[in-house]
Design a protein around this nucleic acid. Structure first.
Lengths: 220, 220
DNA sequence: ACCTGAACACCGTTCAAGT
DNA sequence: ACCTGAACACCGTTCAAGT
């Protein structure tokens, strides 16, 4: 959190924290594809090799970056298990939308401590629901798949930051030309039909209702 | 499909088809991270720059590669809409497992014609089911998220080809050390408990049953 | 039309050296 | 302990040139 930029007399010109925070900013602004050790170093006003005193290699840095995103998710929840699961899902979804570059990394990179804590928490919440084990497992995967899948889709069509001229033209082409009418219809359904409709929450509730219902079914 | 390797007198030493097929083989064997234009060219016995007569740039090649994977999915289906959706889902899942490198690309890359045809087909099947529009939409996303999410997870823990020493140690550490007990429990549930249980199909049927039930609910 | 080598502007990382 | 430049082994791609 403290970020000593140059600090004449003191020793630590660089900090792991400062490195990660700067890298995060660069990834947020220009995408992770544009983030290189060299650019990061010059952004920090340091030599490239200085970074390697704080980070083993680039992959480890990216892992740290993704975990930094996971750290933004509030783990404290209120209410019963459906409310709690909902809060975790929404908070994760929002964190991913804040850092779109992290979406493809989310499921690719080995989890860091914050990510593990988040997963642990969601599993804990589901365990508290006393669902039959296979339903709990299904529920966990349905929720995480929904979170990731929906974030990916959000960014694919229509996220303002990721939008390139190229992509907008391709979408327009898809909607204009007659090939793939069902796909065009589906995209339109999302783009104009439901923009102020909270689709993420809507489907999320369907999943949670389904889980709650499974439990009721088993208990009678 | 024809692959002329050197063909002394004839002109086409290279073919788009031959390039894509060779690149696919390399990606399958060594992962897409290891696939470079230069290595691909030498594998083909050509100069790097020769490739650029068939392919605009590396990104386009990767798009073609992913579409090559999509092309493996059989679009012809039999039976009612649940059977048809099931067949498409299973075939897609299998194609992704055959080419694990394609899983993260699947939702990142702009779709090619085969991928579009596949999406169109699934939407068509769901349209044929006469579900209420929002249920059809939910169903489409539930299915695609399940396909992608499950494939990702399969590869994350336990896919033999992607398994590195590194990763096996990390998983072992997770299971051995006491941090994150719920996560460890969850991984164990998948690793030993259900190895011969067809989890993909099981959850897939739950989704399809849920959709069918929604329809029944609305019709009465 | 098809293929190419040289060159440019980048990468991540090793290594040996500086304070 | 902390920082570094030179060097190595790579990248994708432009350009001008060959057949």
């Amino acid at each position: 959190m403290g970020r000593p930029k140059k600090k004449r007399g003191g020793k630590p010109v660089l900090t792991l924290d400062h490195i990660v925070e700067t890298a995060l900013g660069m990834a947020d602004e220009q995408g992770i594809e544009q983030l290189s050790m060299r650019k990061l170093a010059t952004e920090l006003g340091a030599g490239v090799m200085s970074l390697y005193h704080y980070v083993a290699d680039k992959d480890t840095l990216v892992e740290a970056l993704v975990d930094r995103v996971a750290s933004e998710v509030e783990l404290e929840t209120t209410g019963d298990w459906t409310a709690a699961a909902r809060q975790l899902a929404v908070a994760t979804h929002e964190a991913l939308l804040r850092h779109p570059w992290a979406i493809p990394e989310w499921s690719t990179v080995w989890p860091g401590p914050y990510r593990f804590a988040l997963t642990e928490q969601l599993l804990e919440v589901l365990a508290g629901a006393q669902l039959p084990p296979d339903v709990a497992d299904l529920g966990f995967h349905a929720l995480t798949n929904h979170i990731q899948g929906f974030a990916r889709q959000r960014v694919a069509y229509g996220d303002t930051r990721t939008d390139t001229e190229e992509m907008r033209n391709r979408v327009k082409g898809l909607l204009t030309q007659g090939d793939y009418p069902r796909v065009a219809e589906h995209v339109r359904y999302h783009v104009d039909g439901h923009s102020n409709h909270d689709e993420f929450g809507y489907v999320l509730d369907l999943i949670l209702d389904g889980l709650a219902r499974s439990k009721a079914d088993c208990q009678q």
